[in-house]
Design a protein around this nucleic acid. Sequence first.
DNA 1: ACCTGAACACCGTTCAAGT
DNA 2: ACCTGAACACCGTTCAAGT
Lengths: 204, 204
Amino acid sequence: MARRSEHSLEEIKEMILKAAEDIIVMDGLQALKVRRIALEIGYTVGTIYMVFENMADLIMHVKGRTLDELGDFLDEYSPDVPSDQQIVILAKKYLEFANQNYNLWSMIFEHRLSKDQAIPEWYQDKVDQAFVRIEKLLAQLAPGYEQPYVHSAARAIWSGVHGICILSLTDRLSYVEIQKIERNIMLLVENFIRGWVLTSESNH
Amino acid sequence: MARRSEHSLEEIKEMILKAAEDIIVMDGLQALKVRRIALEIGYTVGTIYMVFENMADLIMHVKGRTLDELGDFLDEYSPDVPSDQQIVILAKKYLEFANQNYNLWSMIFEHRLSKDQAIPEWYQDKVDQAFVRIEKLLAQLAPGYEQPYVHSAARAIWSGVHGICILSLTDRLSYVEIQKIERNIMLLVENFIRGWVLTSESNH
DNA sequence: ACCTGAACACCGTTCAAGT
DNA sequence: ACCTGAACACCGTTCAAGT
């Protein structure tokens, strides 16, 4: 025992994160235990505390990964359509990601760190990267509003899309059910934009 | 010890729920432990299992209570204002409740029961009572749309309001910060309604 | 019948001890 | 230096034993 050096610390860290993700995808966040991760990667519990401070730290890193994946997924949007349709497409992609990766996605919002623990800066950056990027994309599509107002509108409509997702989605829905949610998202986004553009025009 | 009969089972149940609520309000759901509840009500842990199946059962009852309180609070809305303003007022009241009772309110959405446990019927009824009532109120304000379409729109805009709340709120925000969130809610609701009424008019 | 509290299984975390 | 695994504190839940 001890001093195996079969894997570098970086490799072990990667193995742990991969194992944790697998467990969450299969059985949800509640099924994530140190001993199970240890078993899955062929090390003992102590090893996990070599590369992560504690469980909360490990979970934050899994959440960070999911945010990265979400960002990458949303970047694959197709820019060869009318502006107002792009928002709908982006919103649909968000729904698709949330549905396909439900246990990982919902974990981002379910898990709250205890009051004394501050949100790590690197994590907050990832949140910003994922969501502010969305807001920027939406803001590009805006008519001649003032910058801060555009930002608010983007944030409002995007929160709205997220609200529909979080209240509608459960573990794994059928295609028909997803289509219903898609229609609700379109309802919200299209009517909002229609009302918004209308106000813009009457201002000029 | 044993056979005290100082309180009826109903009284004990009430004491437990009250203690649990107090703990959650003060220190959040994570601070809720059987032993702490037992200490607070002056009984031992075994007693709690006389009136509740387990912790999950107890938590569901606390969530049910919060839903009742939320419903009562929203019923205090003032009907002596223009229809389109009523939605905004209702949405603002929702934000107010969520902010004032943050730990209880967020618990409704944070806590997920393990996969094997089904949602109790009485709890699902309370959810419907709280949220479908909102949807009905919103639906009343609608122009001459078809019934199912009105219902979808109500659900969409209400999910949107909830989305803004869930992404904006944290433990206890200042009055200024709450006002910012209020403005985002108004932005979403007012523009949605404007766009929606517009479509309605062009259909007739 | 009502309530206790020791006992159990399981959890995250630590750290002296091995190589 | 790297890794183990026993030990600790704490958790939810049970149930034989008291009155």
